[in-house]
Nucleic acid binder design. Structure first.
Lengths: 203, 203
DNA sequence: CTACTAGTAGACAGATCTGTCTACCGGGCA
DNA sequence: TGCCCGGTAGACAGATCTGTCTACTAGTAG
């Protein structure tokens, strides 16, 4: 029975694996999902999975890379670019994008934070990878800060990321308005840095 | 050999269990620590453990309660009371206490956040318990906001907690100065609410 | 046709997880 | 003396976890 489907859907087993990993890991966390569950969800034999990824760890690393591509770049950065024009407006638009995200019934929080908190051992490859992905996001913020001509870019970017991560955790803890609330604090921080993000310019 | 020690250290098996649970769960997270490891660390038979707690879940709930007592009340609230006098100063002192915490080599982040993020299922008892413990902290903040005569206490408390949680995650991701950075943002938020926390009054 | 490639199904090993159970020990107490 | 009580050590059941392996199949290229 299962045999027949192989000809109907031979479409890259690898892509199926990556998709399933993305769905399951981002929703439930990497510790909570086993490779059997994963293979089943991907509609793929466990053997095939281990052909592409020599260990679950490698698969998780690939998941984190995919998360950066789909979540960080496509969804977050893309959403911001679409929503705002000036760099200061883009910074604030992060929280508009978050606002919609927090209200989705399947809101899953940030995978990088989740993986980071799941691994206490400081040298663990998954922990280090999560840190790097978090750094990547901060570098993006820093870029916007530079464009916005914030005096101390580094300090500002770190503060802004603290706001972002705090709002995500708060939303996961049940505060659906966390994005709106955090945006207000962000506006204060921008103002303190001499940036007025709400000029007469439309949108 | 192990027999002899029982008479030397009969001191409440239960207390030993609670201590071990606190150490291991707070450091490594609840999913990462099994009951065997826990019983071994407590120097107690697994049977004894299951006598006091009918399941691991119950043990984790007890751990969270203990965490609230030791971390939230004793350490955090106690530290704040000791460090500051006025409510506004107390709010800012949170980040002084955090600053020292973040620099400890065994900095373990917030157990409530960890447990929350480890359990995706919205109705899960551990998730709900974590949310309640996070609520407790916010109520404490809210109390300080009331004392400080902040106009909108609820909104302020939620924003302040976002700052707190964001700084903890940032510190766990490697930013040792997260507390100092966040304190600066907190000062902005206080100022916006008409509170000047840095009067001539000493300390 | 042959050989190769990509994949399947699923058994298996060995570790680890939660939770239960038996058999035992030693001190306090009536 | 006899009995209970708190605790120990560790075997066990059954699930689940990562990772390996065999035997098979279907499609494709030469």
């Amino acid at each position: 029975m299962g045999v027949r489907q192989s000809s109907r859907k031979p479409a890259n087993a690898r892509e199926q694996i990556d998709r399933a990993a993305y769905e399951l890991f981002s929703q439930y966390g990497v510790r909570a999902v086993g490779v059997d569950t994963l293979a089943a969800r991907a509609g793929v034999a466990k053997r095939t999975l281990y052909k592409y990824y020599p260990s679950k760890n490698e698969l998780v690393l690939a998941f984190l890379r995919r998360r950066e591509e789909l979540w960080t770049r496509s969804w977050l950065q893309g959403g911001i670019e679409r929503a705002a024009v000036t760099p200061a407006q883009k910074l604030l638009a992060i929280f508009d994008v978050f606002d919609e995200w927090f209200r989705r019934p399947d809101f899953e929080a940030c995978s990088f934070i989740k993986v980071l908190l799941e691994h206490a051992e400081s040298g663990h490859p998954l922990r280090k990878a999560s840190q790097r992905h978090i750094d990547t996001i901060r570098l993006f913020i820093r870029g916007l800060a530079v464009e916005a001509q914030v005096p101390d870019r580094e300090e500002f970017a770190k503060q802004w990321q603290i706001l972002m991560m705090g709002s995500i955790v708060a939303a996961y803890a049940g505060d659906l308005d966390a994005a709106r609330r955090t945006k207000a604090v962000g506006a204060l921080l921008l103002a303190r840095n001499g940036i007025d993000a709400r000029p007469g310019t439309r949108k």
